[in-house]
Nucleic acid binder design. Sequence first.
DNA 1: CCGATGGCATTTGTATACAATATTCATGTC
DNA 2: GACATGAATATTGTATACAAATGCCATCGG
Lengths: 225, 225
Amino acid sequence: MSRASDRAYSAIRNMILSGELPAGAQLGEEALAELCGVSRTPVREALRRLEADMLVDRTDTQRTFVADWSISDVADAFELRAMLEARAARRAAERMTDATLARIKAANRALLDAIQQPLPDVAGFLESNREFHGIILEVAGSRRLSALLGTLVEQPVVLRTARHYTREELRRSHAEHEELTAAFARRDGAWAEAIMTSHILRAYHAYADAHRARLDAGLTQEAAE
Amino acid sequence: MSRASDRAYSAIRNMILSGELPAGAQLGEEALAELCGVSRTPVREALRRLEADMLVDRTDTQRTFVADWSISDVADAFELRAMLEARAARRAAERMTDATLARIKAANRALLDAIQQPLPDVAGFLESNREFHGIILEVAGSRRLSALLGTLVEQPVVLRTARHYTREELRRSHAEHEELTAAFARRDGAWAEAIMTSHILRAYHAYADAHRARLDAGLTQEAAE
DNA sequence: CCGATGGCATTTGTATACAATATTCATGTC
DNA sequence: GACATGAATATTGTATACAAATGCCATCGG
């Protein structure tokens, strides 16, 4: 990650995910180059990668903007993610080894630790959650599946919403992970697939509810951050 | 498609899909630049896009090679494609309009025409087939689904195998398209999804059988072309 | 006042030069 | 003879200059 184009990619990506670069903002290559302390060449490369990630949009005349995720875009992404992660879970269950099962259990223990802090450690939760899902994807053993899911997991608004998860919601995630672990222990692909589908779709509705609540409170998305 | 980087992308992509650049061949930026008549800059951009398409691989030290699709890679791609196109078919059935249905029927009529030539017009078949699947994807109305499928449809070896389809296999494709059209006419998403799954998986097995036959004949993949 | 037109400013695209890194091959040492 | 070492070579990464295109704004004509 020391190449200039990688630094530019991470920097711009983080600014988009954090909301520092708001949806709809124009991304001029020169301006970004200055921000990242590199020349336009690596910035251009970074922008193309972000375009493939669908984090930025380009107009017909080659101007680049921060992608504006409508609520239906988010729903679309979650629906596809549910299908793909469920497939990954099924494959993982069918190929599960005891060693991998131990890693999965460890990840979910770490996740529980993060939740049980006096103040829930959301960053730690997200990290363990990423680890948990990452192991499953690894065991599923499909490069393509991993690649496809790559563009679906990180969504700007959703990530920011995660910070507001209640302890109850975090606990629910942990419980679902435990159930997934049980399905893996039994090598039951159909069960794992079903739990994963419901796990992702529940997360989607948690987000959608929070989103609606903010709208009802008469706040704009910006103000709610 | 007049920008130099687009031309480079198409040129290199075609050389890979046609087999002119064989699997495993190293892709030097300078050499490709000369081949395409452009400088290294657009070639680099093209290579990044091809990497995202998984048509080329890069080593840990940034060297680029034509991706080598093992039979299990092909199986993996088909499995995912079946899942995603089936989902698209379901969504399309649920959103079908009479106007779109007419376009789908027209595409399949064109496909039948291509088949019924004295010598089956495989290029025409492939074109109509692309059109047929393209309309479904369009009606499915999910940018992400389209994007994900984009990297799965064109597979180097498979495309070359298509040339050897028998008239019987082509007819079978047409019949399955007809059945899909019936499901669309009824707006029956579950039916459309099931037919599409079986349509893609049958195509996969047709390829796998042909592949095996070539191996049994003691031919290398190259020699069989 | 509205819309079209032309030219200036800005932005993106491409080529090229140079820097950094990887590979190769010859050389020397054990 | 095998392996490590290190220059020579080849390849990729980045910066920059310039070309092409796009957008903006002022001016002009209706």
